[in-house]
Amino acid sequence: MTTTLAPPAKPPARGPRQARPPRNTRAKLASGSRFALPVLLLIFIVIFSILEPTTFATLNNAKTVLSTQSVLALVALAALLTLVIGEFDLSLGAQMGLSALLLPGLTANGAVPIPVAIVLSIAATTFVGLCNGLLVAKAKVNSFIATIGTAALIGAVVLAYSGGTVIFQGVPAELINISSWAPLGIPGPIIYVAIISVIVWVFLKRTPFGRYMSAVGGSKDAARLSGINTDRVTIVTFMLAGTLAGIGGVVEAGQLGSGNPAVGPSFLLPAFAAVFLGATAYYVGQFNVWGTITAVVTLATGVAGLNLLGLPSWVEPAFNGVALLVAVALTRYLRGKPV
């Protein structure tokens, strides 16, 4: 094998492809940054508690912050699912809004019993997820574009259904029980998020389907060549994201007690900010459930604290925007490749 007549002698030129750039700095930063986000949360809590001991550092404030963020957490978990398979679902905010409008709309004047209306609302967003999945997997439309399109269509449906006004007449008062229910003093929405987070975590980490999702997100070609039905994984993932957004809408409707056609799309950006920020924590460079939840709480705490300090209302979107950009750039760097 030393002297050669035919093709060969690859080692020299093939070498460079194999030799990876030194990633020491990145690796060190990645391992060091695992707990940066929870530490940031602690710092927020400590600082705001010192600045506003009577308003911020109270159990009630904590409950309020957490339960108002529960809808965002559910939308973020939905966004997490699609990001795991390497796709964007930009219609999740609109989907949540659709569900949050359908539930009071359907139950108004006792037309549909509340449990049935809940199922229908979630089914509606799951169907939207199915459409998104088919567009992406079968029609091969870029998920970014496809979901912007469905988001616009949902917006149209919401306007048509509500006539552009808040639906409150005849909405049963029991609707708010969904979110005001608080066993042992723990607000229901917090319990829902806790349960669903655990389910999503187990689903991603402990089921074959979750494994397939990571594989599809890692390399669609390699996944397909390993016998994974990548189309099916894509479609089902979009449907599951729709289901979670729908559940988020149900909780939102419970909190509002009425149907507001304007609610929904504004949840999209902070949800993505949370997922990307979450990817910098615990399992660095990977979208993960606990990072996402920590990020939701951290962002909410930051915003709540700033609000209590009496800062103007533009602080919140600015805070979320900066968080999203920093998080995406950081995730990009820590993963060593485009997100």
Partner: peptide
Amino acid sequence: RRDGCILDMSIAENITLAKI
């Protein structure tokens, strides 16, 4: 790198991918 394996996943996840 593109078709054979999934670089983002662990050794274990790659080895078991075709037969979970």
